[in-house]
Amino acid sequence: MEELMQTLKGQIVEQLNLQHIKPEDIGDDQSLFVEGLGLDSIDALELIVLLQQKYGIKLANPSEGPTVFKTVRSIAEYITAHKAA
């Protein structure tokens, strides 16, 4: 899980062009949207693309998005659960 979260942080910075942020600056449990990292709705779509491209996982139910993409840890947990499934 720890390794996956570190990988995810690098992929998020790259995919979302967050050039002002270093991957290690993103906390495992830091909120990614609004008051946290400040991501927006277009970033959410990019995260969906990231899941598909890097992990072959399609978000089956879009309403799950806010829960899945809440933090780096929640994304890692979702990937782990759906990779194993």
């Binding site: 277009i42 779509l45 990019e46 693309v49 598909q52 491209q53």
Partner: peptide, 10 residues
Amino acid sequence: ATAPSPSLFV
């Protein structure tokens, strides 16, 4: 060709 980028599309 791979995955359409939302952030480019906008």
